[in-house]
């Protein structure tokens, strides 16, 4: 056990095969950097939830290993969960309990002392804005409220690592903002966050790193800025006065992948944004008036889609 490790989460050729099905996870190697917020992306059925369950010891791997703070995950090592705050995608809690009762019982599972636990429960219910319903039974709660209870339960013993499965799912805009702020706040305290999400904009907004899982394999992993600046084509739209002449000038340029003409508009796909000054220089030299150059900034959605399409075409 090493809380100072560079990678609080690490897997080595982690695989999971369910009975009578193909591999849900196939030799996955991931490393989550300490103190960072890492997004875990993938289409439905990519293997995200399976990975998370393997990290928590809720499932046994078919082969390979998972490590939390350099300690190999085994179902019998329940004590490892003291160091993980987990929020499932669909948090479900016993409906006969109130949030106060539930959090106190969970706190006792962590071995927390009575006085400390009572204060922490009040503090957390305030934080997730459930203080006014603290004595109502959970069975009367909406999905969003359940999500807040789940978050409070994950934060209960202030662990150094959070594994959050779709943390803003089922929340309204204010709820989403609240959860994002809590995650950022925990990260600012040096906590590591590993969160799965299908909301790519949310991931771009919150995370510094991402792991993209597809078909049970890691398709891409690294920093988001690296993904966005990597060698992925850029879309450019030109509005010029003489399209025919423009086409003649640009058609043989090696960095132009394709183009289509639509009236005065030329839509091009170029290798990178760095090619645009060269295009404009050529056009200006040939007295072509440029009314507009519109660059479609590559966002994470396009980048991920390109990766997924690329993987499927292979």
């Amino acid at each position: 056990m090493n809380l100072e490790t560079e990678y609080p989460i690490r897997t080595e050729k982690l695989s999971k095969k369910y009975i009578k099905s193909k591999f849900a996870l196939n030799e996955v190697d991931i490393r989550i950097k300490s103190g960072k917020i890492t997004g875990f992306l993938g289409v439905n059925g990519a293997g995200k939830t399976t990975t998370i369950k393997l990290l928590l010891g809720l499932l046994e791997p078919t082969s390979g290993k998972a490590y939390i703070f350099d300690e190999e995950v085994k179902s019998e090592k329940a004590w490892l969960k003291k160091y993980i705050g987990y929020l499932p995608e669909f948090p479900r809690f016993p409906g006969f309990l109130t949030p106060v009762e539930l959090l106190k019982i969970y706190g006792e599972f962590y071995g927390m002392e009575k006085g400390e636990l009572s204060n922490r429960v009040r503090e957390l219910l305030n934080l997730v804005e459930l203080s006014d319903v603290e004595n109502k039974k959970i069975k009367t709660f909406s999905k969003g409220m359940m999500q807040r209870v789940g978050l409070a339960s994950a934060l209960l013993n202030s662990p150094p690592l959070y594994i959050l499965d779709e943390p803003t799912s089922g929340l309204d805009l204010l709820g989403q903002q609240l959860v994002k702020n809590i995650i950022r706040d925990q990260n600012s305290q040096g906590k590591t966050v590993f969160m799965s999400s299908h909301l790519l904009k949310e991931v771009q907004e919150m995370c510094s790193d991402i792991i993209l899982l597809h078909g049970g394999k890691v398709l891409w992993s690294g920093e988001i800025k690296e993904l966005l600046s990597s060698n992925i084509n850029t879309n450019v739209r030109l509005n010029v006065d003489r399209t025919d002449e423009t086409v003649k000038l640009i058609k043989d340029l090696s960095f132009i992948k394709s183009f289509t003409v639509n009236g005065n508009m030329i839509d091009m796909v170029v290798e990178s944004q760095d090619n645009i000054p060269e295009i404009s220089t050529i056009l200006v030299k040939n007295n072509i008036k440029i009314y507009e150059i519109k660059i479609e900034t590559l966002n994470i959605e396009n980048a991920v889609l390109n990766l997924l399409k690329g993987d499927e075409s292979e």
């Binding site: 928590l56 809720l58 499932p88 479900r92 962590y110 071995g111 339960s153």
Partner: peptide, 14 residues
């Protein structure tokens, strides 16, 4: 009720 997943994310063994 699907509550095991939260119960077993706490430090208790089966």
């Amino acid at each position: 009720k699907g509550t095991f997943i939260t119960t077993f994310s706490k430090p208790i063994t089966r």
